[in-house]
């Protein structure tokens, strides 16, 4: 399954194969840093607003594709809130990987992670930061980095086939 997480409300791009799209449907609440998704209701966010099970969607997908406005080299608040609310894709326990600390797996899948960023004046520094962050995400999810792509506007995204 392909999991698309995007801030585009009327998202209607061509997507091949089985997929699920997470996009703004009413307001998303932001993470409050309580760690309930690790040690109260493991695997699920304690805030029930329709976005509490994104980590399960991540556990079931083989590819995760982010389509987001670029905010200074990272994703937009909607996409970020969805990501923050889904950290229970991994467990709270730490492990060491390539000499660095990361979290233990909860799900056995390997996510191929890519991101498509749009925005009028995405700078070279922002592109570099965006790549570093998405690579970092892939590492933390025990997944594979599958590229970052940049577009000058939402319109330019139109031809995109996912």
């Amino acid at each position: 399954m392909k999991l698309i997480v995007t801030d585009i409300e009327d998202f209607d791009f061509k997507i091949e194969g089985e997929h699920k799209v997470i996009n703004p449907q009413g307001n998303i609440k932001h993470c409050i840093g309580c760690f309930g998704c690790w040690a109260k209701t493991p695997g699920e966010c304690v805030i029930h607003d329709g976005y509490e099970r994104t980590s399960l969607d991540m556990g079931l997908c083989d590819e995760m594709i982010i389509v987001s406005e670029c905010y200074y080299g990272t994703v937009s608040p909607f996409v970020k809130a969805a990501q923050d609310r889904a950290i229970s894709y991994v467990q709270g326990d730490f492990i060491i990987k390539n000499g660095e600390m990361h979290h233990k797996h909860r799900y056995p899948n390997t996510i191929k992670l890519s991101a498509h960023f749009y925005g009028e004046d995405i700078t070279e520094d922002e592109k570099k930061t965006a790549k570093d962050i998405i690579e970092g995400n892939a590492e933390n999810f025990h997944g594979e980095f599958n590229g970052v792509y940049f577009y000058k506007s939402k319109d330019e995204l139109k031809g995109l086939k996912l």
Binding site: K80, D132, I133, N140
Partner: peptide, 8 residues
């Protein structure tokens, strides 16, 4: 938060 800033 997830290698970046908190959404808010």
């Amino acid at each position: 938060y997830v290698d970046s800033l908190p959404s808010h």
